[in-house]
Amino acid sequence: MKKNPILRETSHVLIPVILLFALYVQFHGDYGPGGGFQAGVIFASGIILYVLLHGIKKTEKIISLQTTKLLAALGLLIYCAVGVAGMLLGGLFLEYNVLAADPVAGQHWGILFIELGVGITVASVILAVFYAFAKFEK
């Protein structure tokens, strides 16, 4: 696949757009269809496209299996941290109303961070699973 110039050049154009679209879906999830799950999947598929065209070795220099494992744990930790932050500020676990002075603003912050955690976890889990399959030797 490395020798096919059309695919390679198209991917150069497409991959940044896919990653940017993933971020749009991530942060526009409050207003339109979208959110952490979809954004994570789209982000991972952008990177998987890079792997398919440039090979796994080149991609691992940018983002390695170890990094994806750490990021997967980090996303889950962000989610839990939001819950615990609500507890520390005097609310219940995962109660966002106390995160800011105004309850609605607090809800906004809570949802933003939780979606961020979900997005990071989903993207890195899918990428790590793909790496695991791609690196497996018979």
Partner: peptide
């Protein structure tokens, strides 16, 4: 269902990993 779809991809990937192991 949104949640279920994401769980389904997770279970599918575990199933595929089992298939690969069985094949080995």
């Amino acid at each position: 269902i949104l949640t279920a779809i994401v769980v389904s991809i997770a279970t599918t990937s575990v199933g595929l990993a089992l298939v690969v192991k069985i094949n080995k």
